[in-house]
Amino acid sequence: MTTRCPCGQGEPYETCCGPYHEGRRKAPTAETLMRSRYSAFAVADEDYLLATWHPTTRPKSLDLDPDQRWMHLEVLSHTGGTLFQTTGTVEFRAHYRWQGHRDVLHETSRFIREDGAWFYVGPA
């Protein structure tokens, strides 16, 4: 059975964000990286999250809560972050459920591209 990718693009995980998580492909745009990072939260892939976090802001480790369930992603807007740019932002809402309550993380994230790879820097 094919699992739909959590990023919301409607594609199977194995052909959507899976190749990024496995290191077989690099995200070509800031939005693609943001979507793949959301999926990494949804599947609890701490290694990918740390690897795609810019070294200047990356925490030493992550402690993902197994009770937090990421439910739905809405990409609201983006600036820059294309194949030909080195910076970008993505505004999104990430819906989740934790301890029986629904909530939303609303953020505009900053991204930077170095040596052909996009990295999450932090909130804008």
Rank of each mutant, 00 (worst) to 15 (best):
105 L>H: 13
9 Q>Y: 07
84 F>K: 12
6 P>E: 09
17 C>H: 02
112 I>F: 00
55 P>S: 10
28 P>F: 09
38 Y>H: 03
6 P>D: 06
88 G>K: 08
95 H>I: 05
101 H>S: 09
51 A>D: 14
60 K>V: 01
53 W>H: 13
115 D>M: 04
72 H>W: 12
8 G>Y: 11
79 T>A: 15
11 E>C: 01
54 H>N: 09
34 M>A: 04
15 T>S: 15
50 L>H: 07
58 R>I: 01
118 W>P: 05
76 L>M: 12
61 S>V: 07
43 V>Q: 04
83 L>H: 14
62 L>S: 06
38 Y>W: 06
122 G>M: 01
24 R>C: 05
94 A>K: 08
14 E>V: 06
75 V>K: 00
53 W>S: 12
113 R>Y: 04
16 C>M: 04
120 Y>H: 14
30 A>Q: 04
5 C>A: 08
102 R>Q: 13
75 V>C: 06
52 T>C: 08
59 P>G: 10
36 S>K: 00
29 T>F: 05
80 G>P: 10
97 R>T: 14
1 M>Q: 12
7 C>D: 07
66 P>D: 14
64 L>Y: 10
104 V>N: 02
19 P>S: 14
63 D>K: 15
18 G>C: 11
114 E>I: 10
103 D>I: 02
52 T>Y: 01
111 F>M: 01
64 L>S: 10
16 C>F: 10
83 L>W: 06
66 P>Y: 08
74 E>K: 14
8 G>F: 05
45 D>R: 08
77 S>E: 14
27 A>F: 03
124 A>E: 11
6 P>T: 11
68 Q>V: 15
83 L>R: 15
74 E>I: 07
72 H>F: 14
30 A>L: 02
1 M>A: 13
35 R>W: 04
56 T>A: 15
107 E>L: 08
92 F>Y: 12
73 L>F: 12
7 C>K: 09
124 A>Y: 03
32 T>D: 13
120 Y>R: 09
29 T>N: 10
63 D>C: 09
116 G>M: 03
105 L>I: 14
50 L>R: 03
63 D>H: 15
110 R>L: 13
75 V>W: 07
4 R>C: 00
47 D>T: 14
108 T>Y: 01
58 R>E: 06
18 G>M: 02
16 C>A: 10
7 C>V: 03
118 W>E: 06
72 H>V: 00
30 A>N: 04
47 D>H: 12
34 M>N: 02
48 Y>L: 06
4 R>K: 06
80 G>D: 12
63 D>I: 08
52 T>F: 11
62 L>R: 09
114 E>K: 07
58 R>L: 12
25 R>V: 10
117 A>S: 15
90 V>L: 09
52 T>V: 04
95 H>L: 13
27 A>H: 03
52 T>Q: 04
61 S>N: 11
52 T>I: 02
119 F>I: 01
104 V>Y: 02
52 T>W: 02
92 F>E: 04
97 R>W: 04
20 Y>S: 04
107 E>R: 05
57 T>L: 00
23 G>I: 05
90 V>H: 05
88 G>F: 07
110 R>F: 01
120 Y>P: 06
90 V>E: 05
81 G>K: 08
123 P>L: 11
100 G>Y: 07
8 G>T: 07
50 L>A: 08
102 R>Y: 11
72 H>N: 14
27 A>S: 14
17 C>F: 09
94 A>G: 12
